[in-house]
Design a protein around this nucleic acid. Sequence first.
DNA 1: CAGCCTTTGATTGTTAACGATCAGTGTCAA
DNA 2: TTGACACTGATCGTTAACAATCAAAGGCTG
Lengths: 236, 236
Amino acid sequence: MSSNSKFSLNNSSIDPEEALIVDRIFTAVMEQRLAPKTKLSEPKLCETFGVGRMRVRRALLLLAAQGIVDLQSNRGAYVACPTPTEAEEVFAARELVEESIVRKMAASPDESKLAALRDHVKQEDQARVDADRSELIRLSGEFHVELAKAHGNSVLTKMLRELVTRSSLIVGIFGVNRGVTCPDDEHTRILDAISAGDGDAAAGLAAHHLRHISEGLDLSQHRKKDDDLTAILGSA
Amino acid sequence: MSSNSKFSLNNSSIDPEEALIVDRIFTAVMEQRLAPKTKLSEPKLCETFGVGRMRVRRALLLLAAQGIVDLQSNRGAYVACPTPTEAEEVFAARELVEESIVRKMAASPDESKLAALRDHVKQEDQARVDADRSELIRLSGEFHVELAKAHGNSVLTKMLRELVTRSSLIVGIFGVNRGVTCPDDEHTRILDAISAGDGDAAAGLAAHHLRHISEGLDLSQHRKKDDDLTAILGSA
DNA sequence: CAGCCTTTGATTGTTAACGATCAGTGTCAA
DNA sequence: TTGACACTGATCGTTAACAATCAAAGGCTG
């Protein structure tokens, strides 16, 4: 049911096995099952995915290029641990991009696509009542990506996916009460504003929504974890 | 004098040699000295940069992740050839991002940073009178990156750099009169609007500027080239 | 007992050789 | 003459072994 994300890296058709590894780690980070500072040792990943070292190595390089993984020379790969500054920049970038996206969407509302988004929100609600933490976190983040996808610009979509994933990392580090991901019905209200063609309201709600998340962060404490690994990446 | 760009890939310190290769190809594409569809064969790049095959390979992968290079299985690496759809998306994304950036900058103008940008425009003028085509193209594109840098968000800056470079590719393919890159004084007018604190005007000028470029494209004809190579990447 | 040094084990980075695939060329037959 | 087929050369993808580096454990000395 999960991971329909189909991580296509450009038109350039990267090897499917490689894309799979990247996607696995990607979603694992998105679902906050891979905590920052977690070591991603090559041998472990090799046996986890049953592939050669080269594939793992290239996947890690791709993840590093997206800021998801931190490659330290002669020391291995670790899940990235964004700095407070980086955290602010990511959320500022999201605010800037998402505000404009929803405003443009409100300028010419497409009801069919909005229906799909409402469906997505329903899945979120379902995960909420099921108390499926991972699923809820993933869906909450993916909503914003789906928003960009509905806007129809794949370049922007890719950018936003990167930003959203990094946000998951940030919330994982600095979040005080990580249980509350996207508070209740804010997503629905954004969709309503778009549907009503009220661009300013939609933009305001989107900005407020992001501020609501970023203000729930305490940019001082860190936490680290380096457990399990092979069990984490096995699911989905 | 050129290539002060210091292509730092995240905080994650990638090998300097590798970054150098990426940066070389990056700027070569930006200056439109590497045409789309140009083959980047591994042996050629190896002897050009005097490094092993692995470095070249990783550099190509990084470039592919940014949409600059197209990796075709068992066929080699080529400078990417964006489709018309991709071209529209890139310019739409730029419009969305740059509009917001200049608007925010106008909200709280920083004269010292604006002075640096005016200095940059002066360099453009100098290159224009010198008829230094490559330098002018590079500076014209880099102006937009500097704009993002002046805004102070490194995440956005990195994104915009990617978009600007892709724009160079697009103009290289679809541009009818490639000589005219950024028409005359539009950059200055944007800076003036920011300095005056007129956000709407600045955003409008930025959008107009980008539309001016994208409307100068003919999204039907293609051209290809596969010449020299080792001479192109030697400079800078 | 504490601190420093050495050693050891594991993990990463690099290189080289091998196998697979593709584009171009030449030949043969219709 | 033209089309298809096989061959060849080169390039790419992969694997495996080697070298370099680092972190932790253990022992030595003050």
